[in-house]
Amino acid sequence: MAVPQHKIWERLISPVVSFLIDEEGLERYALSIDWKKQSDRFHRDDVILPSYYSSYKFRGIEGGYLHPKVVVSYDPILQYLLPPNETLVRQAVIDAIQVQPRRILDLGCGTGSTTLMLKQAFPQAQVIGLDLSAYMLVMAEHKATSAGLDILWRHGNAEKTAFPDASFDLVTASLLFREIPTTVSQTILRECFRLLVVGGQVLILDSNQKALRQLEWLKEVFEELYLRDYAAFNLHESMNQAGFLALSSKDVWWMHQVTSGVKPISKVDVTKYNTVKQTVSKSTDGKIDNNDLEDLGSPVFGIKA
């Protein structure tokens, strides 16, 4: 008899994953941490948790990313949910970067796996990881400290980050959009546009929408509330509505995709840039120093939007 699709994870996949990870060891580790004390270092009273987040379930666990058991098991489980290899999948974000960023923001950073890779790729850049779960940030900081990486972790909502306009050269989001309503995704894209300097880049790594549309059973396997909406979501159109140009998507191991957009340079900014370029071209070596573009707030004018 066929197993009902909505039971595929519960009956077939979950037992396999449970066999592959040390659940008892993870539980002991979770109990060894004073979560309130550790999370209080990140918690901000002005951050309001939206209902779609506070009611989220990760593999059926109530509280989702606000539950210590989920936080400590997230990395061990996820490595089996991002075929063929989690690091290879996340590397697609690094490979898609077309700018030389000085300031990077990783939205919905979770336990910081992509955030750490961004810092390793651009050690001189200021890298900030933002997440709604202060518990997740506890794990992220532990990983960064163990790796000897200086990263700033911020408790906050990607819909409204509270950072000033044009604060970043690169904004990324990994495995975020499939877990949230599409209306929230649109809000986040507008926030990304606001946060980026002119010429800045946004990169979104997530499930492959084409694959999800073609393989209906995949949506049942993962049992994520918003996965169907995400599969039907026109990401390029939404990014274009937010103001992004030079849109492109690339398949990553068929099951995933990375989508890129660029905040275009306005006519006013182009005039400023040309003025700077003409001034610098009179120097002896004829090279343009990115620092001379400081008035535009961006060192990333290698991209054409």
Score class of each variant (00 low, 15 high):
3 V>P: 00
9 W>G: 05
10 E>W: 08
10 E>P: 05
12 L>G: 06
12 L>P: 04
12 L>N: 08
16 V>F: 13
20 L>T: 02
22 D>C: 13
36 K>G: 10
38 Q>A: 12
39 S>C: 14
39 S>A: 09
42 F>I: 00
42 F>A: 01
42 F>T: 01
43 H>T: 15
43 H>G: 05
45 D>Y: 02
46 D>Y: 09
49 L>A: 11
51 S>H: 09
52 Y>D: 00
54 S>H: 04
56 Y>Q: 11
61 I>T: 11
66 L>V: 09
67 H>F: 03
69 K>F: 07
70 V>I: 15
72 V>D: 04
73 S>C: 02
79 Q>P: 07
81 L>G: 02
86 E>F: 06
88 L>N: 03
89 V>E: 06
90 R>Y: 10
94 I>Y: 01
94 I>T: 08
98 Q>T: 15
104 I>L: 08
106 D>C: 14
107 L>N: 05
110 G>Q: 11
114 T>H: 03
119 K>E: 09
119 K>N: 15
120 Q>T: 12
127 V>D: 12
130 L>D: 08
134 A>C: 05
134 A>K: 03
140 A>I: 10
141 E>K: 08
141 E>L: 02
145 T>M: 15
146 S>N: 14
146 S>R: 14
147 A>F: 00
148 G>A: 13
148 G>T: 13
152 L>H: 15
155 H>V: 01
156 G>V: 00
158 A>W: 05
160 K>I: 08
162 A>K: 13
165 D>A: 04
167 S>H: 08
175 L>I: 12
176 L>A: 08
177 F>C: 02
178 R>C: 14
180 I>E: 04
182 T>S: 13
183 T>Y: 05
184 V>E: 05
185 S>N: 10
186 Q>E: 03
188 I>M: 15
191 E>P: 06
193 F>S: 07
194 R>P: 04
200 G>H: 03
201 Q>C: 01
202 V>Q: 00
202 V>T: 12
205 L>W: 02
206 D>I: 06
207 S>Y: 09
208 N>Y: 01
208 N>V: 00
210 K>F: 03
210 K>Y: 05
211 A>K: 13
211 A>R: 05
213 R>S: 07
214 Q>H: 07
216 E>C: 01
219 K>E: 10
225 L>T: 05
231 A>G: 04
233 F>W: 14
245 L>I: 01
247 L>V: 10
248 S>F: 15
250 K>I: 00
259 T>D: 06
259 T>W: 01
261 G>A: 01
262 V>I: 14
263 K>M: 10
268 V>A: 10
273 Y>S: 03
274 N>H: 07
275 T>Y: 12
277 K>N: 06
279 T>Y: 10
279 T>N: 15
280 V>P: 03
281 S>C: 12
283 S>E: 12
283 S>K: 09
285 D>E: 14
285 D>Y: 13
291 N>S: 12
292 D>T: 11
296 L>Q: 11
297 G>A: 12
297 G>N: 11
299 P>T: 15
299 P>Q: 15
300 V>K: 09
301 F>Q: 13
